[in-house]
Amino acid sequence: MPGEAHASRSTLVEPLWLRAALIVAALAFLGLFLLLPLTVVFVEALKRGVGAYWNALQEPDALSAIKLTLMTAGIAVPLNLLFGVCASWCIAKFDFHGKHLLITLIDLPFSVSPVISGMVYVLLFGLNGLLGPWLREHDVQIIFALPGLVLATIFVTFPFVARELIPLMQEQGTEEEEAAIVLGASGWQTFWRVTLPNIKWGLLYGVLLCNARAMGEFGAVSVVSGHIRGETNTMPLHVEILYNEYNFVAAFAVASVLALLALVTLAAKTVLEWRFGHELAATRRGG
C-alpha cells in the first residue's frame, strides 16, 4: 500500500513552477492583507516615538477603556463558557424535543447583524423599552452602562464555545459516558472525569475565539454604550473616538494594545498546541 502511493506520487504532484507560484501568491496575499495592516498599526502608533506612545496609553480615558474591555470580556467569556458547555452537553449527549430549535437559536447571533443585537437591548432595557420604566423605578441602569455592554458582548459571542464543542462531542459519542455510568460514576463525576478531559482542547479553542471577539466587538457595543468617556467606551469605541479627534498616535496606540491582546491570545493557543499537541491529536482520535 505505501509503495503504491509512493509510485503514483509524481503524476499527482504539480510542476515546480506552479507550486512556487501558488506559494508566492498565498504569501503575498497574507502579507498584503494581514501582516501589512498589522505592521501599519504599530508603525503609526510609534510614529512620534516610544514616549508619545507610552503617554497615550497612560491617558485616564485610554486606561479606563482597556480596563472596561478586559472587565467586559472577563464577565462575558466565563458566562458563555458555562453556557456553551451546558448547551453542547445537552445537545450532544441527550435526545429531547426542540433540540434542533435550540441549535438554531445558538446560531442566531451569527446570522443577526451586531447592530441589531445592540438595538434589541435598547428596545428591551431602554427608558421606553419593555423593562425600562421598572428598571428606572428601581434605579438599575442596564444599557449605557457596564451591564448593557456585558449583555451585548454575551449575545454576539454566544455561539463560539457551543459551536466549537457540539461537533466534537457528537463525534465522540456517548460510549465513554455510558461506560462510566455502568461502572457506578455519578452524573457529575462522569462530566468531570470523562467528558471534560475529552473536550478540553476544543473548549480552550472556543474560549480563545470567544475572548478575541468579545474584546474586539464594535457594532453591538456601540449601540448600547452611550459613549461616555472614561466610563462606557471599550477599546474599539475609544479607538474610533481618538481617530475622529485627529489624535492618530493615540488611536493607533490603543489599537496596537488591542492587536497585542489578540496576538497574545494566538500565542497562548500556539504554545498550548505545541506543548500538548500529542494529547490534542489523541482526543480528536479518541472520539
Binding site: F125, G126, R229
Partner: peptide, 20 residues
Amino acid sequence: VKQSHGGSGKQARSVIDGLA
C-alpha cells in the same frame, strides 16, 4: 464632568432611551 459626543439627533435618541 463626563462627556459623550456623537451626531446630535443620535445623541438625543440615546437620552430618550435612558442615557442619564
